[in-house]
Design a protein around this nucleic acid. Structure first.
Length: 649
DNA sequence: TTTAGGG
DNA sequence: CCCTAAA
């Protein structure tokens, strides 16, 4: 997967009068396309996209044998995500677009965010004020140059798509402007401050609900030439308008964290199009507002982009039609069927793939290239005095956290979710005959997120630490709402990357209520539709429930377990749990029972056969003796009771 | 829900 | 760790 390391933003004067007055139903979660909410998804999305894009890193292609099961594929993808050691770098206002000598972009952006960026109060939106969307568009300033980068066989297709793009572009030309302008706008603090972000009267709503735009539809075109250097970008366009855009990432822009990319014609500016809808809501708590990020798409750039181009394709209908309300629309990604000779692996295949997926003779290879991910809805609660930088880091925290614990990978084929993880790619039809672009990846919230460790969890490694920023982060899942105990998310795991939380300014810390200081709370998104609140495990998609992460027992845990079992015996796992693991929320009594089972087994095998962290022999001896003792007790009690029952009978 | 045991 | 019959 390859994502741009930086995303550029530009602000364009909004045009309140031209904004349609959207209907605002009480349910309000899904607004009709084209309503007043259009626009600001872009910013929200890009915030997320940038973070996630960086998190996801450059896992560009994956060579998968076609007998790989969907489950395995998901596992691999997730593994890729989680193994990404790159520091998330969150740059909603890209430094790269700020010329030297200019004030830093956080300062520039602050007036923007303080005026209109923050939009929604999750809890009580007694009245809402709709802020006109601030539209940012970065338009392609080249489209002809890219043809040379793609296989000739695809030229025709691209040409036709180009034509379509032109057509659509004209339709939306009113909002388009050149990237140069955008960047200029972005860089001019005065301009930003001069923006009149006050909403027009007709956009003030007293409705108690806030209407949110539906998930963005995506138009996607991607041509994977299977030649990294000739990789062609995909393009997304949100549903609000079908304007096209394309982008090119000059090396000096994209380069970040060692990520090198090249762009022929490096003087050209990045091109991209997206929107974001922001709304402002009066909140009960003054000085605090919440950012609500709707899901969006991530843009990506190939590692060695030489040209970029956008073609369009009506692609999302499949997804939307097949999608359940509240379900995150599938992402796009392309797959290029690719036959592999025996033992041949793609040079871009990751080490993981290389060692995990050994191709058998005559096995077909399927090359998967993830083009983008959609990010589940995230709501971030923070004071409006916060700067963009804080928002960035807050979002980083949230996404980092979610990537570690809350996200799983979903796979869809032609818009239809693949629910059977055991099916192989071949069985599903993802083989030679796979149609280009028919496979979708998505990031989803997994139900086990509620199992995130708690501060009281004594068995948790010290790497758990309280988040030092006050924030509430709501996240809406893909298929199901997920909930997390409020304090369950007050800690996040410090990434191995050494990613540090930003220190909040003292003044701001003081302004924040104590209750919030250590809260990185994942709170359930209020769902106005009770019918949609369906327990995950009881849904038909139960197959999608992610397996809990493996958490090997530490020696100290084993010690506690052995001690408890010595005391209580082997048939009272609930008591063992309460006695020794009451504060280890991730250890269920079933887990303890299973662990005991494996301990007994471990104790019986030779030390050479044992794996994992070695358990002291002393403990294993105690396991055996305790097991023997309680087995005997159990047998005795049966002998003792059976006659009684016989007598009673 | 908890136990017990196979997968 | 998961799944689930049985209690």
């Amino acid at each position: 997967m390859v994502f741009p390391k930086r995303i550029y933003y530009g602000f364009k004067d909004f045009q309140p009068s031209s904004l349609p007055k959207g209907s605002r139903s009480s349910r309000g979660r899904r607004a009709a396309p084209g309503n007043i909410d259009r626009g600001n998804d872009m910013f929200a999305f890009n915030l997320l996209a940038t973070v996630a894009g960086n998190l996801l890193n450059d896992k560009e292609t994956q060579d998968q044998p076609s007998n790989l099961t969907a489950k395995e594929m998901k596992s691999i993808v997730k593994h890729e995500l989680q193994n990404d050691n790159e520091l998330p770098k969150f740059e909603p206002c890209d430094q790269g677009s700020c010329d030297e000598g200019k004030p830093n972009c956080e300062t520039l952006c602050k007036p923007f965010i303080s005026q209109g960026f923050v939009m929604k109060d999750c809890s009580e939106a007694s009245s809402s004020v709709v802020v006109p969307p601030v539209v940012a568009k970065l338009e392609a300033n080249e489209k002809s140059s890219y043809e040379s980068t793609v296989d000739t066989g695809k030229i025709d297709k691209q040409a036709s798509l180009s034509a379509e793009r032109e057509k659509d572009g004209d339709a939306g030309s009113g909002n388009r402007f050149r990237s140069d302008e955008i960047i200029t706008n972005l860089l001019c603090a005065e301009d930003i401050q001069d923006l009149d972000l006050k909403p027009p009267p007709n956009l003030v709503s007293s409705d108690s609900s806030v209407e949110l735009p539906p998930y963005q539809k995506q138009n996607y075109t991607g041509f994977d030439t299977s030649i990294p250097n000739r990789r062609v970008d995909v393009k997304f366009s949100n549903r609000y308008n079908d304007q096209n855009s394309s982008r090119c990432y000059p090396s000096d822009i994209i380069n970040s964290n060692g990520f090198k990319s090249q762009c022929i014609g490096g003087d050209r500016k990045i091109k991209k199009s997206s929107e974001a809808v922001f709304r402002k809501v009066k909140t009960s708590r003054q000085n605090e507002t919440k950012c609500m990020f709707r899901s969006g798409q991530m843009y990506y750039a190939g590692q060695k982009i030489q040209k970029s181009s956008f073609k369009r394709r009506k692609f999302f209908e499949r997804f939307t039609s097949a999608s359940h309300q509240g379900e995150m629309k599938s992402d796009m990604f392309s797959m290029s069927p690719e036959k592999s000779l025996k033992g041949e692996t793609s040079s871009s295949a990751t080490a993981l793939n290389a060692q995990t997926l050994k191709l058998k003779p005559d096995e077909h290879n399927v090359k998967c290239s993830i083009k983008s991910f959609m990010v589940p809805e995230v709501i971030i609660n923070m004071p409006d005095s916060a700067t963009i930088g804080e928002l960035k880091r807050r979002t980083e925290d949230a996404l980092t956290n979610l990537l570690h614990y809350g996200l799983q990978v979903g796979i869809a084929l032609q818009g239809k979710k693949i629910s059977d993880d055991s099916k192989t790619l071949h069985q599903i039809g993802i083989t030679d005959t796979a149609k280009f672009g028919s496979l979708g990846f998505s990031l989803e919230v997994n139900s086990d997120y509620q199992h995130c460790p708690q501060p009281s969890d004594a068995s948790e490694p010290v790497s758990w630490f309280p988040v030092s920023v006050p924030s509430d982060i709501c996240m809406k899942g893909t298929q199901e709402d997920f909930t997390c105990q409020p304090d369950a998310a007050r800690i996040i795991k410090k990434p191995k990357t050494g990613f540090d939380l930003f220190p909040l300014a003292k003044t701001e810390m003081q302004d924040t209520s104590k209750e919030d200081v250590n809260a990185l709370a994942v709170v359930p998104v209020l769902n106005s539709d009770p019918l949609s609140v369906i327990p995950l495990r009881k849904s038909k998609r139960s197959e999608l429930v992610q397996r809990r992460i493996r958490r090997p027992f530490s020696v100290s845990e084993v010690e506690a377990l052995v001690h408890a079992v010595e005391k209580l015996g082997t048939g009272r796992w609930r008591d063992v749990k309460i006695r020794a693991f009451d504060n280890a929320k991730h250890r269920t009594y079933v887990d303890l029972k299973d662990k005991w089972k494996t301990l007994v087994h471990t104790a019986r095998i030779s030390p050479q056969q044992r794996r994992g962290e070695p358990v002291p022999q002393e403990l294993l001896d105690r396991v055996l003796s305790a097991h023997a003792y309680w087995s005997q007790q159990q047998a005795r009690s049966q002998i003792k009771h059976e006659p009684e029952q016989h007598i009673l009978a």
